[in-house]
Design a protein around this nucleic acid. Structure first.
Length: 189
DNA sequence: TCAATGATTAGC
DNA sequence: CTAATCATTGAT
C-alpha cells in the first residue's frame, strides 16, 4: 500500500502535488488520540525552483529536502508558524510539496494553521510519513477526489511567482485562498 | 558578527 | 493594510 505512495512521490513534484489531493494525513498525539485530515491544497517546489528553500544549497534547515521521498520537511516561518512538506523525487533532487490545506473536522485552512491543528512542529522534521508506526502518516484515499482540481499560482513567494504550481480541490473549506478566475476558467472550459 | 528576509496569520 | 516574532541565511 505504501508502494503506491512511494511510486507517486518518486515522480515529478508538480504531478505529486496534484496527485496528493484527497490523500489523508494522520497524526497520533501523545495522549493517544488521532487527528485526521484530507489534503485539499498543495504547492509544488520542484528541483531548480527559485522559490524553493533548497534552491541555493543544502543547509541545516533544508536538509530533509535532500532526503528520500516520503519524509517530512517541517520548517518554521516568520518566527512563529510551522509548515509541513512531503519530500519528493530523490535524494539527488531536493524537492517537496507544501501541504497548504486540510479538511479536518473543523477545517484547517493555510499551511501554518494546519500544523497547529495537527500539532506538527520541528520535532517531526525528517519523519517517515510512509511508515505506519510514525506519529505522522500519509495515507492514500480510497478513491480519487470527485471535485475538480483548480490549478493556480503559489502564495506568499516573490521568486517564480507566476508558475502554476498550486493545486486545490474546488469547494473545500480547507482551501486557504481561492482563485475565482481560475475557477471560472474551469467551469467555462 | 550583523542586518534582511520570509512557502503566514490575525487583527485593525 | 500592518504587526507579530525569530531562525536562517548571506553578506561583512
Amino acid at each position: 500500500m505504501s508502494r503506491r505512495a512511494r511510486a507517486l512521490l518518486r515522480g515529478p513534484t508538480s504531478e505529486a502535488a496534484a496527485a496528493l489531493l484527497g490523500w489523508r494525513i494522520e497524526r497520533s498525539l501523545d495522549d493517544g488520540s488521532v487527528v485526521r485530515g484530507r489534503i485539499v491544497e498543495t504547492e509544488a517546489y520542484p528541483p531548480g525552483d527559485p522559490a524553493s528553500h533548497a534552491y541555493r544549497r543544502r543547509t541545516s534547515r533544508n536538509a530533509s529536502m535532500f532526503g528520500p521521498p516520503g519524509i517530512a520537511y517541517v520548517y518554521l516561518i516568520y518566527g512563529m508558524h510551522w509548515c509541513l512538506n512531503v519530500v519528493t523525487e530523490s535524494e539527488a533532487t531536493a524537492s517537496a510539496v507544501l501541504v497548504r490545506g486540510l479538511d479536518v473536522v473543523e477545517g484547517a485552512a493555510g499551511p501554518a494553521r494546519l500544523c497547529r491543528v495537527l500539532d506538527v512542529d520541528g520535532r517531526l522534521d525528517g519523519t517517515d510519513l510512509l511508515d505506519p508506526t510514525s506519529p505522522l502518516r500519509l495515507l492514500p484515499p480510497a478513491r480519487r477526489p470527485v471535485e475538480p482540481v483548480v490549478v493556480t499560482t503559489r502564495i506568499g513567494i516573490t521568486r517564480a511567482a507566476d508558475l502554476p504550481l498550486r493545486y486545490y480541490l474546488l469547494g473545500s473549506a480547507g482551501v486557504s485562498r481561492r482563485d475565482r478566475a481560475a475557477e471560472r476558467a474551469l467551469s467555462s472550459g
